[in-house]
C-alpha cells in the first residue's frame, strides 16, 4: 500500500469535490479497494472516506425501493421489503462472499467491484485493465475464470459480483451525483464492455459518486438466483443466472434474466426476455433462449466449459421457474 492522504467526506457535495481530484479514490466498505491497495493494483494518493455520508438508508420509493449507496449488503439482504418483494436480490447477495464481507460491502462499492482476474491482481504480469497497453495476460495464459461473452482483444475479464446481476434482472436504476448535478442510469447500462478501454469499467465520471440504487415496482412471480461455483460457498460464480419470471395461466407473462460470470458486466440480453415473454414454456423455447444467449460466445481454452454450463444453468433455471421440463 502506498502512502496516501486520508480524508473524510462529511457532505455529499464535499465528497464529489474531493473525489474529483487527481489520484483520488472513494472508499466505502473497502473490502475490494483495500485488497487491491495492498497489492498496489490501486495506488491512490488520496482516499476519501464516504462512510459518514447519509446514504445508508433503504426506503420506499414510488412503488419500488430505494437502496442507499452505503446500505451494506447485509442490510439490503435482511430488509423485510427486499426479502418479500425482491427475493432475487436477497438471494443473490446471500450467494456472494461471506457474512463478514457482506457486513462491510456496500451497494455502491459492490457495483464498482473490480475483476478477480489473476493477471489484474498480479502486478508483475501484463494487464490492460491495470496498465493500459501492457497486454492481456489471460488471453494467452490461463483463462479459467474468464469471460465468454462480450470480450475484446484487450481484455477477457469478468465482472465478479452477484448483487448487480440480480439488479440487472430486476431492471434497477443507479442514481449518481456529481459536481455537475445528479443523473440516473439504468443498471443494465452502468457497466461497460472492455472494448479498447478495459480500464474504464462503468459510466462514472471523475468526481461522480453513486448515491443509491432504485428498484422498480415489484414484478412478483418466481425469482431465482442460481449460482454455479466450484465450492458450495465462498466462491465466485463460474456462471450465475438471475431470473424473475411470472406465469399467467400456461404462459410466461413476465421474464427478465441476467447472467453473471460470463462477461465484463452483468449480462442482460433483452432478446431473451422478449423471446420468453408471452410464450408457453417448453424445452424447445428454453433451447432457443440459450441459443440467443450463447450465439456469440467464445471460449479461451480453460473456460470453454462455461458455454455448455451456461446453457444448462439457464435451462435448469427456466425449468425451476416454470415447472415445465418437456
Amino acid at each position: 500500500m502506498r502512502p496516501f492522504d486520508y480524508k473524510r467526506a462529511e457532505r455529499l457535495e464535499h465528497a464529489g469535490q474531493l473525489a474529483a481530484a487527481e489520484d483520488t479514490l472513494a472508499i466505502a466498505g473497502g473490502t475490494n479497494l483495500i485488497d487491491l491497495m495492498k497489492l498496489q493494483v490501486e495506488t491512490p494518493a488520496t482516499l476519501v472516506d464516504l462512510n459518514h455520508l447519509p446514504l445508508a438508508g433503504i426506503e420506499e420509493h414510488e412503488d419500488g425501493l430505494r437502496i442507499g449507496a452505503l446500505a451494506t449488503n447485509t442490510a439490503t439482504a435482511v430488509h423485510p421489503r427486499v426479502r418479500a418483494d425482491y427475493p432475487l436480490l436477497a438471494r443473490a447477495i446471500l450467494a456472494g462472499a461471506t457474512q463478514q464481507l457482506r457486513n462491510k460491502a456496500t451497494t455502491g462499492g459492490n457495483l464498482c467491484q473490480r475483476t478477480r482476474c489473476w493477471y489484474f491482481t498480479n502486478t508483475d504480469q501484463p494487464c490492460n485493465k491495470r496498465e493500459p497497453g501492457s497486454g492481456c495476460g489471460a488471453l494467452m495464459g490461463r483463462a479459467d475464470l474468464h469471460a465468454v461473452l462480450g470480450t475484446s482483444e484487450a481484455c477477457i475479464a469478468t465482472y465478479p459480483g452477484d448483487m448487480a446481476v440480480a439488479m440487472a434482472a430486476l431492471d434497477a436504476t443507479v442514481e449518481i451525483a456529481g459536481e455537475k448535478g445528479s443523473r440516473s442510469v439504468p443498471l443494465r447500462e452502468f457497466h461497460l464492455l472492455p472494448g479498447d478501454t478495459p480500464h474504464i469499467e462503468n459510466v462514472l465520471e471523475p468526481g461522480e459518486i453513486i448515491t443509491a440504487v432504485t428498484l422498480p415496482t415489484p414484478v412478483g412471480g418466481k425469482q431465482i438466483y442460481r449460482k454455479v461455483r466450484e465450492r458450495s460457498s465462498y466462491a465466485f460464480a463460474l456462471v450465475s443466472v438471475a431470473a424473475a419470471l411470472r406465469m399467467e395461466g400456461e404462459s410466461i407473462a413476465h421474464a427478465a434474466l441476467a447472467f453473471g460470470g460470463l462477461a465484463h458486466k452483468p449480462w442482460h440480453d433483452p432478446r431473451i426476455d422478449d423471446l420468453l415473454t408471452g410464450e408457453k414454456p417448453s424445452m424447445a423455447l428454453f433451447d432457443k433462449a440459450a441459443d440467443l444467449l450463447l450465439e456469440d460466445a467464445q471460449g479461451y481454452g480453460e473456460n470453454d466449459a462455461k458455454i455448455p454450463l451456461a446453457r444448462r444453468a439457464l435451462t435448469a433455471t427456466l425449468i425451476d421457474a416454470t415447472g415445465v421440463s418437456a
Binding site: W118, G141, R231
Partner: peptide, 16 residues
Amino acid sequence: LVNCDLAEYHVPVHRD
C-alpha cells in the same frame, strides 16, 4: 502460479 491466494485456490469451506 496464477491462483496464488485463498480466494482462487479452493480449500474446502464449512459447507463442503
